[in-house]
Design a protein around this nucleic acid. Structure first.
Lengths: 339, 339
DNA sequence: ACCTCCAATTAAACCGGTTTAAAGAGCATC
DNA sequence: GATGCTCTTTAAACCGGTTTAATTGGAGGT
């Protein structure tokens, strides 16, 4: 376990100064090509890689990006979004020698998470996920001077670029699909209205129905968890005139709702049609297969990382990026309503 | 956005030298109490927090731990283990001002992930999850000189402490539960035999059956994914004498298997009993609720982080830690076999 | 042969902490 | 009053890079 070589070792071996090694490594002009070659060869022979720690200190950068997620079971426990999103982020970071730093915080104290990342200088920028209406984190990050990219577009002013994926076309497609099947009594289980993406799905739902001259049987507000899916579904099924189709704001609630309907003695899709949102792994494999909307969280992560890196690199006025909208995936959980 | 204060600012304000400030901060003896108070007061007034970067450089520590996970959809996509595990890890790290660095790597190239974390000096230690038989990563980490803790006990020699959760009692309980219900034709969908925890569950399954004088109808090897759960279940149901109960090595395969059975026209549990492993969120809410085994990944993360930190802190001979075994959760997916 | 100018290179400061060796202060001892 | 000893405190080196300002050497011009 010999100590790793330092820049001084390389300099000595190449017969030049530390500064020249630094120049050669960073491809800065002003060095003769022959010298550059000599230095790179020496570095190679010694297997030298510059120390991140030293570099971090002298250039005041962390070479890392941060993601704060809440420990809230609703978001954390089995959300299909984050793992794939993170994989997408990493696919970008690994090519640039950057790392991803995770902060998991207690529900409600996300601010502390960002503050910690900033004060410790652990990261050069952060991802702002699960954007809320009038999200206080935007102001916080401005105050902390921490670059960021928002996932979805905030409603207020924001100095940060946004990477957006329009949930509305997918939701619209689901509703239209149900209407085409002949449904007129359609209900929704929405997500918490505090979230931007939850309300986007909700308004798209309402607007599509309205465009067809229909109105929702009922709209229940869930919390994106399976438990919430059960509870809201039970309420909908207990209505004097229950819906013949339910549109859920995510797959977890939909799969739980499917279970609730079956537990209530209903057959899906004969008695009740059910649609989700996400196309999570299990959606395809439950019985009946879940009609849902397919997003691409991996690509979301990839794009978000690229965008954030442009900001971090000092690019001003990085434009928002719009991802291709999620598309409808029709499976067996939706069919014509009972007669 | 004034620049953050440095140790020199604090020293000037307190009228002492940089060194004294450092001593005071780290609670080292040799300073008069009055001086310590004066320094801490000055630090407080300026809102000074030592720079992690500078500290990292001078003490050659990263103040961070690392986790490498594979991008393999089988492990990544909706594994209920990691998010909760990570939350547990963070609950420890956040109190110590440490960070968690994530590396997501392409399937099969985990070695690169660890190598990168080590060479970049990003972390002081790593978690070794999803331990395999004769896991090559152990040798790699020894070679890299990177401290680690293994999740489960490796079969070969290992210089690292292990945090273990015995899967066998839980599996045994499931099988005994099925036997008590009257099942004699029990099959298993195992995990990939390369994984230590997969074979632990498999041997416990086989041994418990054998102890009751039974033998498995069939053992299929799945890959922990929902798709694999479907496929193996179909094969089991197509046997000339199909099982009356199937024990799955995780919930994802079990839930998919449940779907496959229902799609084949069977009623669970009347025609077929099904049991999973993990007690993931959806287990409770699918129909019928899944009988499974409840592990505690949060606590696993917590304990692993504490243990790894002892190693990182230079404690030699940190003992292995055994977590309380997972326990059986009986729901509606298991019942007496059909007559 | 001398001066100028430019390209290539280097010495040294710097980032913000930690740590070691040495200096200084205060007091008892002889 | 000099010596020795402990208790505090400090100056300076160090971690391993980056960056700026200064230096060197050689080519080109007159």
């Amino acid at each position: 376990m010999a100590k790793r070589p330092t820049i001084a070792d390389v300099a000595r071996r190449a017969g030049v100064s530390k500064g020249s090694v630094s120049f050669a490594l960073n491809g800065r002009p002003g060095l003769a090509q022959s010298t550059v070659d000599k230095i790179l060869a020496a570095a190679d022979e010694l297997g030298w890689r510059p120390s991140n720690r030293a570099r971090s200190l002298s250039v005041s950068k962390a070479f890392a990006l941060g993601l704060v997620i809440t420990r809230d079971p609703a978001v954390l426990s089995s959300d299909p979004f984050f793992p794939a999103f993170i994989a997408g982020v990493e696919s970008v970071l690994s090519t640039r020698g950057q790392a991803l730093v995770l902060q998991v915080v207690a529900d409600g104290s996300e601010a502390d998470g960002y503050r910690r990342l900033a004060q410790d200088g652990r990261v050069d920028g952060v991802f702002l996920s699960d954007l809320r209406h009038d999200d206080p984190r935007i102001g916080l990050l401005v105050e902390l001077g921490l670059p960021a990219v928002t996932l979805n577009r905030p409603d207020g002013d924001s100095p940060f670029p946004a990477v957006t994926l329009d949930d509305r076309p997918g939701t619209r497609a689901v509703v239209e699909h149900l209407i085409e099947l002949g449904h007129t009594r359609i209900a929704q289980v929405a997500g918490p209205p505090a979230f931007v993406h939850a309300t986007a799905r909700s308004t798209a739902f309402a607007e599509t129905l309205a465009a067809a001259g229909l109105e929702p049987v009922a709209v229940e507000t869930g919390d994106f968890t399976a438990a919430g899916g059960i509870e809201t579904t039970r309420r909908l099924l207990a209505l004097p005139e229950p819906p013949t189709a339910i549109v859920y704001a995510n797959d977890r609630m939909a799969i739980a709702g499917l279970g609730a309907a079956q537990a209530a003695g209903l057959t899906v899709p004969d008695d009740l049609s059910i649609a989700g949102f996400d196309d999570s792994e299990l959606a395809e494999y439950v019985h009946p297969g879940l009609t849902t909307v397919r997003a691409d969280p991996f690509r979301f992560g990839e794009t978000a990382a690229q965008t954030l890196n442009r900001v971090v690199d000092g690019d001003t006025d990085v434009p928002d990026v719009e991802l291709p909208p999620a598309e409808l995936v029709v499976r067996r959980s939706t069919a014509a309503p009972p007669l």
